[in-house]
Simulated scan of single mutants.
Amino acid sequence: VSGTEVELGKVDFEKLIEPLVAKTIQCCKNALNDSQLTANDIEEVIMVGGSTRVPIVKQSVSDFFGKKIHDELNPDEVVALGAAVQADILAGNNKDFLLLDITPLSLGIETMGGLMDVLIPRNSKIPTKAARQYTTQKDGQPGMRISVYQGERDLVRDNRKLAEFNLSGIPGMPAGLPKVEVSFLINADGILNVRARELRSSVEQSIEVKPQYGLTDKEVEKMLMDSIANAKEDMQLRALTEVQTEAKQLIETTERFMQKNNSFLTDKEKQLTLDAIKELNGVMQSGDKDIIHQKVEALNEISRPYAERLMDAAIGKAMSGKNIKDTI
């Protein structure tokens, strides 16, 4: 070091690299968890890279998997050998093996409140497909924006935006009635096709995306590490955002109900409802999901009796003059 000869004993060396070896073992644990396997399911453990020649690395990996490691191949050439095997398979010369690719990061869309709704989780085998149904937020909503994201965080602002398109031409219907199916399809080339289709009217729009375009291995690793480091905070933010979204929807629904059925409510019911809405609005930005949830339940308790009363009246009117046997 700096022209001075220094001797480092095996014991001291192993002590210095112990944190790095522990990190390697943690990566092995994560890989098993992601693939839903145990160490007993692994048949061979092949060592890759020059550092795997270090005795303590070999011993630690062998102890973790509970079996003798495969170190007969040159660890500096293993990756190249694997690439050659894959090239042989892709060329159609080797039909005895099938190597499956996976998605390194989750793929999903943005939902109310800026939340990430995952359709294809990370580590899904390619090719793969998934679909989910969504609906509109407002009465007569003519279109829906589909924003596609990639990443592991609960809020889309912390993930990578891949694409965005509008599904327009949705027939005018009450909020919640349209059924929009969003489907993701990743083909063998890793190209993602996103399709949105309103099932009642067959209105449809689609787009093609290359999820891995412009994304380096380091960026993928950083996104994964960020998701682990912020997991607790993200869960809390998701829970808060979900209850805020529920509160906002409830307020809008209740106000529309009151406008449409104003004469059906008593003055006391109107005042109680307005007070409950005011209280709920007052705590919306408090950051306390439990208080918001309490106020949501309070508004529900006030509005439920007259909503049920109106429903009973509507049913009674529809059944007026009819024989019960005719409706069975």
Rank of each mutant, 00 (worst) to 15 (best):
R256L: 09
Y149D: 14
P178A: 11
Y213Q: 12
K125E: 01
K125R: 10
I146F: 08
P127H: 02
S51M: 13
S286A: 14
E181G: 10
E18G: 10
I315Q: 01
Q285N: 07
R309N: 13
Q259F: 02
I69W: 00
N93H: 08
I42Q: 13
S35V: 12
A22M: 13
D217M: 10
C28Q: 07
D76I: 13
S124F: 11
T266E: 11
G172V: 15
I102C: 05
Q271D: 10
V57S: 05
L37M: 09
T111F: 10
A276L: 03
D217Y: 04
L98R: 01
L265S: 07
A314G: 02
L237H: 01
A83C: 06
Q249C: 08
E44T: 11
A31S: 12
I25L: 14
K268Y: 05
A318E: 10
G169W: 15
Y306R: 05
S62Q: 07
D267I: 04
K325Y: 03
S60G: 02
S201V: 15
I89S: 11
K289E: 11
V148R: 12
K218S: 05
L280C: 14
D275F: 01
E308H: 01
A91L: 03
V11G: 00
A188C: 04
S147K: 06
R309L: 12
D312Y: 09
S147P: 00
R53D: 03
G143S: 15
D275Q: 04
T254Q: 05
N193I: 03
M284L: 15
Q205D: 14
K278M: 13
T111Y: 07
R238A: 08
V156M: 06
I170W: 05
G92Q: 00
V194P: 01
Q133I: 10
I324G: 01
Q86E: 10
T245P: 00
D326H: 04
Y213I: 10
A87R: 09
F264Q: 11
A84R: 05
N261T: 14
K295G: 06
E44V: 14
D76L: 07
